[in-house]
């Protein structure tokens, strides 16, 4: 096995240990706890008061925040390899990245100017 796989074997062991810990604790709890089911115990917790019930549709304005997150997530994904090779690639890559970020920032400015970032 190469060093590459050995490094990721550690990650796999960590994930396995995490799953085993969660599973072990929940399983142990299930084994030793008393079970007295009551309907009140299955009521959804809503900040301590009785739940309103049903399910409300969320405001579509949240979607802009989700999409902004996706946009800047994608931007970050491109910035990582760019940052690794910035010194060897030089000014040309710097300019392409600035153009990329400016175009994405235009979207942020648009959302800002249209007032969707403001919570009325």
């Amino acid at each position: 096995m190469t060093d590459y796989y050995r490094e990721y074997l550690a990650v796999a062991v960590l994930i396995g240990a995490g799953l085993a810990m969660v599973g072990g604790m929940l399983g142990l709890g299930k084994l030793i706890r008393p079970t007295r089911p009551q309907p009140q115990k299955y009521v959804t917790y809503e900040a301590g008061s009785d739940p309103v019930g049903g399910w409300g549709q969320s405001n579509v304005r949240y979607y802009v925040y989700a999409l902004l997150f996706v946009m800047f997530d994608v931007e970050a994904v491109f910035i990582f390899p760019w940052a690794v090779r910035l010194e060897t690639l030089g000014v040309q890559s710097l300019i392409s990245m600035i153009v990329f970020i400016v175009i994405l920032a235009l979207g942020l400015v648009y959302a800002w100017r249209k007032g969707v970032l403001r919570w009325a």
Partner: peptide, 26 residues
């Protein structure tokens, strides 16, 4: 950043279009 600069910039246009669309809908 050498062979695929143009597709890379197109990605930003695509994301911009998606955001503008979402703002218009919202």
């Amino acid at each position: 950043f050498t062979a695929y600069v143009v597709p890379f910039e197109v990605v930003s246009i695509l994301l911009l279009a998606a955001l503008v669309g979402a703002v218009v809908i919202a």
